[in-house]
Amino acid sequence: MNRLSAAFARLKAEDRAGFVAYVMAGDPDAGASAALLDALPTAGADVIELGVPFTDPMADGAAIQAAALRALNAGMTLKGVLKLAAGFRAQHAETPLVLMGYANPFHAYGFSAFAADAARAGVDGVICVDLPPEEDAELRQALAENGVALIRLATPTTDDARLPRVVADTTGFVYYVSTTGVTGAATGAAAEVGAAVARIRAASGLPVAVGFGVRSPEQAAAIARAADAVVVGSAIVAANHDGGADAALKLVSELSGAVRGA
């Protein structure tokens, strides 16, 4: 069983939702980023999403865009991200690691080479924000050949007619974007999220992680009661920028505690 399936099976056995922590690779630099990654599992992250910095992150809000630019200015590249991933994997055999980014850096690296190197680095899944199902065949095949999951996004605008297509080739889990908007904006109402999660679970047969706009432990707990996992990104990235790794890890502890207690 791969690490993602194993992690969600464990969560199911423990009868609780998981906590997914998003951090930007290379923010503020490669060394600090490696140290933060290393500490996330102990702080309570069940799954880690590692942001791949891109100059033009159209679906991200101010916090994550600024983090991406800091990382790029400090010299982070996709090759550097894979190196961070490999470093993390050498120390942590179980915690799944998912890369989240935009198509152009993967395209520039070459989809096949990227998929092979990601697998070698111990990456378990990839989320590519601007490759909708209509456009992701090339990356999907490359990842599949290397045993890396392609995790797709479902959104409030993904209606019943479209949902089967969106979840058809998704592996690992489905990432439900709980609001129309960029990362860090307001989250959707818990009741609506619950209905959406049920709909996606039924269509996909996969666990559903919910993110975009989750900031506080209370919100995280509310989402955790409806979803298989809760994703927090912008708030952690902002804490890391404002207060350093200590502040980010403290927030991760609080959020994961709230998710576990929900």
Partner: peptide, 12 residues
């Protein structure tokens, strides 16, 4: 060409 946008925008 193509349609390289986030899923939120695809239906639109």
């Amino acid at each position: 060409g193509g349609r390289f946008v986030a899923e939120t925008l695809m239906p639109n």
